[in-house]
């Protein structure tokens, strides 16, 4: 007798890149199962605090439940400490929450992006059972194998020789990062059937570091309400729907 399989895979792609004083977290909005598109708009990127954004990919029901539970833990933190949990603490929290389900895992790949207490942009990536590390960029989901090599090349400058006498920059400016993100998703949409429909890009800017060229971007929307703290923006774009 075949036993009940409590998991499925709902497709999509997520990606995050950290800058010196900003962080960008993006995900497409298609949710699928097998060859069926279930919906063209199911967000995979969630704002947790004023300086933390979480992208989840994998089994959508687990993902939504996991985000909900993380948000409730952050709410308890707010009750206890009257402030938002710092990014590195959220990362550790996510690890313990994932590992507590080691033997019935949340089938979810998490990428956490935001601003650390020292004002630097950060990205943390997780596997479904909680292994995590801080990185500069990470892609996850079924299209990971299309996206990550591209990021390795464009962000880490893998297989690129610097002009003699110069070095590759350690961090890229926001506008370059946004171009890389958008190109990543249009490319993944072309070549992966589970990616497409819509794109949501969250941008978290460190405190007092200006808009960094974001003011010129089409369709950018600010989510934060105060200019004298970290600021969060979202850009929504269409992707091909075929």
């Amino acid at each position: 007798m075949s036993s009940f399989n409590p998991y499925t895979e709902n497709g999509g792609a997520i990606l995050a890149i950290a800058g010196a004083d900003f962080s960008v977290v993006a995900g497409d909005t298609r949710q699928s199962e097998g060859y069926s598109i279930q919906t063209r708009y199911a967000p995979k990127v969630f704002r947790l605090t004023d300086r933390a954004v979480l992208a989840v990919n994998g089994f959508a029901a687990d993902g939504n439940m996991f985000v909900k539970k993380v948000k409730q833990r952050l709410e308890w933190y707010r009750h206890a400490h009257a402030k938002d949990m710092p990014l590195r603490s959220i990362a550790r929290l996510i690890q313990t929450m994932l590992y507590s389900r080691r033997f019935f895992p949340y089938y979810v790949y998490n990428i956490l992006g935001g601003i650390e207490e020292d004002g630097s942009g950060a990205v943390y990536s997780f596997d479904p059972v909680g292994s995590y590390e801080r990185e500069t960029c990470r892609a996850a989901g079924p299209a990971q194998s299309l996206l990550q090599p591209f990021l390795d090349n464009q962000i880490y400058f893998k297989n690129q020789q610097p002009v003699p006498g110069t070095a590759h920059p350690t961090h890229l400016p926001l506008q370059v990062v946004l171009s890389v993100v958008i190109d990543s998703f249009t490319s993944a949409t072309e070549r992966h059937i589970e990616v497409g429909d819509g794109l949501e890009i969250y941008i978290i800017l460190a405190k007092g570091r200006g808009l960094q060229g974001l003011e010129g971007v089409k369709g950018v929307q600010e989510l934060s309400i105060s200019e004298d703290s970290e600021r969060i923006f979202v850009i929504r774009r269409e992707l091909k729907k075929d």
Partner: peptide
């Protein structure tokens, strides 16, 4: 929509089962 796995989604048209295809 919601199903036996707890998967949820919304759209302006929905169909379950064979109707999804």
């Amino acid at each position: 929509y919601v199903d036996l796995l707890g998967t949820t989604y919304s759209a302006s048209t929905l169909a379950t089962g064979f109707g999804a295809y």
